[in-house]
Nucleic acid binder design. Sequence first.
DNA 1: TGAAATATTGTAAGCGCTTACATTACATTT
DNA 2: AAATGTAATGTAAGCGCTTACAATATTTCA
Lengths: 345, 345
Amino acid sequence: MFSQNHTDLAATIYDIAKKAGVSIATVSRVFNQSTKVSESTRKKILAIADEVGYHPRAHAQGLASRKSNLVMVVVPVISNYFFMEVLGGIQDKLSEQNYELSIFNISPNKDAAEQVGHVMKRRWAEGYLFISIHLQNEQWEQLKKYNVPITLVDEHFEGFDSVSVDNEQGAYRAVKSFLEMDYKRIAMLSALETSKPISNRITGYKKALQEYDVPFDERLIIEGNSMYRDGFTEKAGYEAMKKILEINPMPDACFCASDIQAVGALKAMMDTGKKIPIIGYDDIELAEYIGLSTIRQPMRDMGFFATQNLIDRMNNPQKAISQTIYTPELVERTSTSTFKDLKAK
Amino acid sequence: MFSQNHTDLAATIYDIAKKAGVSIATVSRVFNQSTKVSESTRKKILAIADEVGYHPRAHAQGLASRKSNLVMVVVPVISNYFFMEVLGGIQDKLSEQNYELSIFNISPNKDAAEQVGHVMKRRWAEGYLFISIHLQNEQWEQLKKYNVPITLVDEHFEGFDSVSVDNEQGAYRAVKSFLEMDYKRIAMLSALETSKPISNRITGYKKALQEYDVPFDERLIIEGNSMYRDGFTEKAGYEAMKKILEINPMPDACFCASDIQAVGALKAMMDTGKKIPIIGYDDIELAEYIGLSTIRQPMRDMGFFATQNLIDRMNNPQKAISQTIYTPELVERTSTSTFKDLKAK
DNA sequence: TGAAATATTGTAAGCGCTTACATTACATTT
DNA sequence: AAATGTAATGTAAGCGCTTACAATATTTCA
């Protein structure tokens, strides 16, 4: 239940010390799990603290100890399915370890590096999780100078701990599955190509084609309008798919850079009446319900593990740098299997 | 770009003051937008600060000024579409006003009031946004004693600023639209009924029936399995819809308590081959793409406005308490219109 | 030109904690 | 019982800022 004795002047460590007849150091020790306090005084102090509703002020603790118990998550856009899932995993880990979570949202309108610099300079958090943040090489290098624990999620740069997914492999598997079904003209519904995950997926796409001796045709890669959220929207997917369906001759399969775009693509096919098998990317919760075949990324696990990793580094800055790469897997559903059945007939 | 001169011992206000040949008070004034600094020294200080990459430490500022510039968002479950949208609005407002955002996630496994009490006691944030947090009357009362700015979103309790949606009205409109189409046996796919939004929606449902002289039949209200996320999941929707389709005689329309459940419901209809018109609730981004008719809640606006409201109160604690109620509107899409067309024929 | 008014800067006392080091109380050992 | 070791507590110096108040510089105006 809530504290009963609240007044405007909240109790400080001095009040508790006075009431308990001890020094503030002793009170502080009680609240810092120090073992150097006798059981009797610990109990007395805890009782008094509870009675007056005392709780150490985070700012004072932070200033005095030069620690904040705060982990900052830096993300590009908050309303995004991938991020949501990852954040779920982060939360799980953080609450388990008694850390607070703060979120910093990189606005797409301003320079990313500048905003990141701003966050770092505040020196607020003890550790940072960068989710899907893409910077220039030189900017990553600058970031290292802050000498603060940072773990990258869905991105990798030499010298940082990172947790990511093998995008090349994911795309490769998707495209390969099409090739195995004997599709040759495979389109790729892409997004902003300057981002590394996307360029890696394109590499995987090409690699699969090469392996099956299918010549690469750049006209089959369509980049959705990326003005908003780098193109990771249903709308961008919808429009890009319309273009794809107009290519002559029409592609006979399509690999989409994300599920959310694939949803738009599905809609485009419904509206135009044209239909080709598609595979998405991410495996968002929804994919199962619309029967979308997709490449599954273990998003929640990634968040959980990345946080684990970050906390490890916070506790031991000398720890060796690790790069964790999850391999995504293909999940087949009706957006491809119906066609498979047709082929089989 | 990031700071160039980073060392492990980051610059403090003293370093800047010394370099600039002024007192720390003057430096502080520059960083607090005080007008009482001459333009020339302001520029000099800013230049030096930029050069050494100085930035005031949040904890020190917070302790000295007894303010944190921090707004805490308290939510029940983070991975939730409704919350995501609301958070987007909050972010917009907050970044505009230069506040930091922290998130506290109420774990469903522990007592909500206790966790809320814990957050409040830390006295960390200057203002709190409670999103979809449901407490007992007595617990709300206790909360008031902290005497701290709080704005409720998607919930209301006398004595708090709140921003919510008229759930009764929303449900009423949905059900009424069915009644106008001459459907009589209208099922409701519900969720955990102890929550106020849900009970209000049930009230609206009943009200519409009454108005059209359709007797209320409690067997037509099916509560999804609410063990997880209070039942607001596709899975819960899927299973509940299966039950609804088995009711004898089969209902001829269904009002769902959320879009996310409606997605599951749609799937259930596909799987069983039975089909009745449905209306969801929320209007999540996805609804448009799957043609789901729904009751639109202006989620982003709610977040934005609630934050505005909170900041107003933080600046003026005497401000009169306000309750803002948005009226949701019906958005008709194919999940109802196809049926309408059929009827018309 | 000099006093009064105003603009700019400095001084210093906290804000509420942590923690190294010093001190005291108590238990052990001989 | 004195000497020694150990556990428990206290002392005091910050942590890096803000801000009331005091001091000084600059401007204004008679």
